[in-house]
Nucleic acid binder design. Structure first.
Length: 264
DNA sequence: ATGGCTGGTAGAACCAGA
């Protein structure tokens, strides 16, 4: 009997400020597993009760005060594998779990990298590059079927941004970041599920700035969020989409969720 | 300029997001 699993990922930009839309998403889409990034809450005040009422009884939390923070909510059993510090400064940006079928699910929030794409004047950009280098070392040693998802904060392809020309020197789309993300992908032969279902150069965005007067009309999006899988899992993904309407809900996150359906 | 918002925490003429 195949096991169907619907796995979602969403940079929520504060889980407490988004309780209404997270519960709406869980009710309407009913994913088996939801990976959250930027929860912005410490574990002992995470609003887990409201998600348990919706059947998400398995919750792995890795938060910190104020910024960052990741969490995995699940209807099916998950066991924590590790919480890796790829930034080597203690920030809560990763948690990995194992499913009962042995597959690993890795939820990551890669740092944004600040404003200037130059590590000599912007340490945050250097941290982002170092984070990716450590992920590359990790990925090269992976020996189990793995799903890697989250906010990668990099839009690698020209069609992953609204204007390649205008963003090529903007952090998230610079050649040095794109190059490193390519090395990360090659380190495990990751399959990019987004582009498997929507091949380039189709429009595919997951993030739209809060600053636009009308995010939908201007549509200056970027594909910063990703769902990657080990090569042997690529054919197990049966459906995938960006839940773009969530960007237009009340008090939205600036990211839209990714939803992937698997049949294992 | 593309264009000027958002949340958390502290009580900011802040910080971080990207």
């Amino acid at each position: 009997m195949p096991q169907n699993l619907k796995i979602a990922s969403w940079n929520i930009n504060s889980v407490r400020a988004r309780l209404d839309i997270v519960t709406r998403f869980l009710t309407e889409e009913a994913p088996d597993i939801l990976c959250l990034q930027e929860t912005k809450v410490v574990d002992n005040t995470f609003p887990g009760g409201i998600f348990r009422q919706l059947g998400y009884n398995h919750q792995i939390l890795h938060g910190q005060p104020m910024h960052h923070g990741v969490a995995i909510l699940s209807k099916v059993p998950i066991r924590e594998d590790d919480r890796l510090d790829w930034q080597a400064n203690g920030e809560a940006r990763h948690v990995g779990v194992r499913l009962d079928n042995g597959i690993r699910l890795e939820n990551v929030y890669i740092p944004a990298g600040g404003e200037e794409p130059d590590r000599t004047i912007n340490p945050k950009f250097g941290q982002k590059l170092d984070f990716l280098e450590r992920m590359i070392d990790w990925a090269a040693k992976l020996d189990k079927p793995t799903i890697l998802t989250g906010d990668f904060n990099i839009a690698p392809l020209e069609s992953d941004v609204w204007s390649h020309k205008q963003l090529v020197n903007v952090v998230s789309h610079t050649p040095v970041e794109v190059d490193l993300l390519g090395r990360l992908q090659a380190a495990h032969n990751w399959v990019d599920i987004g582009r498997k279902f929507y091949p380039a150069p189709q429009r595919l965005y997951t993030w739209w700035s809060y600053r636009a007067r009308d995010w939908q009309a201007s549509d200056r999006g970027r594909r910063l969020d990703h769902m990657w899988v080990s090569p042997e899992l690529a054919d197990k993904a049966t459906a995938h989409r960006v839940a773009e309407p969530c960007r237009g809900w009340m008090r939205p996150s600036d990211h839209a969720p990714l939803i992937t359906e698997f049949s294992f």
